[in-house]
Amino acid sequence: MEALKEELKNKIITTLNLEDIAIEDIADNDPLFGDGLGLDSIDALELIVILDKDYGIKLVDPKEGKSIFQSIETMAAYISANRTK
């Protein structure tokens, strides 16, 4: 699980071009949207693509995204439980 969290942080920093942010700046429970990392709706689409492309998870209900993408912790838990690759 810890390795997955680290992997996710790396992917988020690279895919979303968060140039000024290092892995250690993102706490597992930091909110990804709003006050935390400050991601926006375009980033949300990028995260959905990461789930699909890298872990084989297709989000059928967009409403699910709100709880899945709350933090690295929630993302990692959802991926662990649902990944197909």
Partner: peptide, 13 residues
């Protein structure tokens, strides 16, 4: 590369 799948909006914008 992705066979017309997994397209994200950033570079398109």
């Amino acid at each position: 590369d992705n066979n017309e799948e997994f397209l994200t909006p950033t570079s398109f914008i």
